[in-house]
Design a protein around this nucleic acid. Sequence first.
DNA 1: TCCACAATAGCACAAAAGTGTGAATTTTTT
DNA 2: AAAAAATTCACACTTTTGTGCTATTGTGGA
Lengths: 226, 226
Amino acid sequence: MCDLLKEEVYYIVIMNKKNKISVAIVDDKKDIRENLEILLNSSANIDCIGTFPNYHSAVNNIPDLEPDVVLMDINMPGKSGIDCIKNLKPKMLQTQFIMLTMYDDSEMVFEALTNGAAGYLLKRTTPHELLDSIVEVYNGGSPMSMEIARMVVDSFKQELRKNKIKEKLTKREWEILGHLSKGMRYKEIAEQLYISVETVRSHLRKIYEKLQVRSATEAVLKYLQK
Amino acid sequence: MCDLLKEEVYYIVIMNKKNKISVAIVDDKKDIRENLEILLNSSANIDCIGTFPNYHSAVNNIPDLEPDVVLMDINMPGKSGIDCIKNLKPKMLQTQFIMLTMYDDSEMVFEALTNGAAGYLLKRTTPHELLDSIVEVYNGGSPMSMEIARMVVDSFKQELRKNKIKEKLTKREWEILGHLSKGMRYKEIAEQLYISVETVRSHLRKIYEKLQVRSATEAVLKYLQK
DNA sequence: TCCACAATAGCACAAAAGTGTGAATTTTTT
DNA sequence: AAAAAATTCACACTTTTGTGCTATTGTGGA
């Protein structure tokens, strides 16, 4: 028992030494790098272990550092932060990446997130929130600025809606909607599928009901996702 | 008469000396540069006057050489062939550029062509075709691999079609088609635009005629291109 | 000034689409 | 095997669309 306890205490001491979250910074602007470094090191449980101004220095050095977290600026001249994360994340699956950017450009956000970024903050984030976010991401969370979170949620809802439609419509209904979306008339669809126009109308009635629309045009628009 | 004849002969000799098509090569791979050079010089009417391995050597030297034709590899590390042509073409409007690439990436193709490339060949082009293409481009043609030509033609057709629609439809018609493409009914469009349903129908009639369609769905599909 | 054309609007008729109700048959799920 | 859902079809009725023809008014160019 005594030995066990001793060992446990020793272990905890080691952990405490290592317990600072090691962070690397990638940003092309010198003043931002320096300010971030000062900010991070001002925190008791965060250790900034390296700053890098561009793609090449980042991909060449960060893998060896094995930081817990990387703060990555998106908008860098030449190879962007997106390129960095594409290169780095596959090599360091244990490292969490937080993207920093001035703008909430949706394309960027999704590219970053699908390439393995865990967090996405706008640069107007307060220092305090940034430090919190680092801890959060280290603990498996996904810190995001409100605007970003909203975008992500919206797109998620959109995906859900799309899947729900697919889920709701039967194979045949989906097929008929597909033909309708090529500009075909009921009659033509009927001929194409070797069924009567009445049947097509039956299906369309159900489709409209499920999609909450009242015309072919509206249904087609929903089909072509929007 | 005798003098005139003499002069003419002399002139022709000069022209023959100059008549070889001068070609410069830009490619990062040494073996390709050398093979191309040998190929070009094996032709009686082509003279390879320089080869360059990268962006900097190309932009620094090619303008002074004033070649008739430049063979430009697209896929070079660092600054690409696209960057080269962006830099060079404005300085040498008389020089024709042929892009060489392994892949028929549509974005590349269009960027190259809009930046002044006259020809675009895939690297699987045979030596004979390549020599022909150099002569062709020198004579004002636009040699392209079949796949490339097809892409260009397709996108061209698409542009044409879209412009044609816009060209044909009046402002009001375009507006009404826009509303229709939101899934609105005639009645709703009429209310929205403070006109009678009959007027909307009048416009739609003309629109359908111009777009060669027979239903709202078809018109909307054309409006949403594709 | 005259003409072409855009924008407006109306009437009439036919075709197509949308809606309510019901039902037979097949397939899938439970 | 029973229940549920999907597929098929039908009839009736209303609304919306598609189309042909016509007409008035305003506007910009030949």
